[in-house]
Design a protein around this nucleic acid. Structure first.
Lengths: 159, 159
DNA sequence: TTGATAGTTGTTACTTTATAACATATCAAC
DNA sequence: GTTGATATGTTATAAAGTAACAACTATCAA
């Protein structure tokens, strides 16, 4: 499995690669990867945990990149609408997507101790989700799966 | 599949049965099914759709059962913590549980047109969710699945 | 039946999260 | 360079949720 978030990894390249991937995608798709948007993504990439919009705004403010809520929310809207970030509804927070560019149904594993979030994927059209939907005649457009629990670092050691 | 919400059904018995089931559970478990809690559940049962806390509060107020936000939130907390209702994070709303008493991982099918919500179930320990979790060493405690789309009543007619 | 205790409700005040609306600036293509 | 679309700055406010404390009610043991 390819979830990132709980294992130690080269976090510097993780940030750099994330920014580069999005920059590339924006370039080829004529999207404006402006300073506010870039910085907002960078802030999210620095942590594999859900951050509040106002927390992000605080950091943007320090960089002189906007000081009012709409600035942060607009940057986040941009990132989310193009699949570069996700909202974690459960905690009203946001995280950078670890698989930008791919169309996917994210599954978030949220640690209730340390707030770390790992992202992995599901295939909603298969399995019981798709089955349940087709039996009721429901048309799936978007699915979110949020799992709360303990990450390996916070789980009690095995007996 | 046993999702309720999209098909037409005997809604009166649906409300009555829901109230009775919860009343029974509370009686045997020494929980206080007070007027506010009972009425809050009844309000939720009247609609198979997510309702906002303030919307519920408005109705409670009309009945003289509390007029300040904490009253509604406390009733909802009670209902949720005992599995009689669920929060739909996606829309900051609440619905009555259609399967009270059973321990379960709910899956919500949310219609973006009419706000109807159908509840069905998943078995997180099986399938990819459990696989993903065990591979990362994550301990699942609670999972929520929210699916956005169109219910059969709102979907465009088949060609 | 009284009194202790835990649980519930009423209320005030406040925090956190999010958005509407409009003015100004910048970009991108002709 | 003008124009139309897109992005930002800003004010003000809406919507969602909670902390804290006082007052009331149920429960149960002595």
């Amino acid at each position: 499995m390819d979830a990132i978030g709980f294992e130690t990894h080269d976090h510097h390249s993780c940030i750099r690669d994330g920014l580069e991937a999005v920059a590339g995608y924006c370039a080829t798709n004529r999207l404006q990867f402006t300073p506010v948007r870039r910085r907002a993504l960078e802030i999210l990439l620095q942590q594999h945990r859900a951050m509040g919009a106002y927390e992000i705004l605080d950091q943007l403010r320090e960089d002189g990149l906007g000081s009012q809520p709409p600035v942060a929310y607009r940057a986040l809207d941009f990132l989310i609408s193009h699949g570069f970030a996700h909202k974690i509804e459960r905690v009203n927070g946001f995280i950078a997507c670890t698989h930008p560019g791919h169309d996917h149904t994210p599954v978030f594993l949220i640690c209730r101790e340390c707030d770390a979030v790992a992202e992995t994927h599901a295939e909603p059209s298969r399995g019981m989700l798709g089955k349940a939907a087709s039996e009721t005649g429901f048309t799936i457009e978007q699915a979110v799966v949020e799992v709360l629990g303990l990450c390996p670092n916070c789980a009690p050691v095995a007996p």
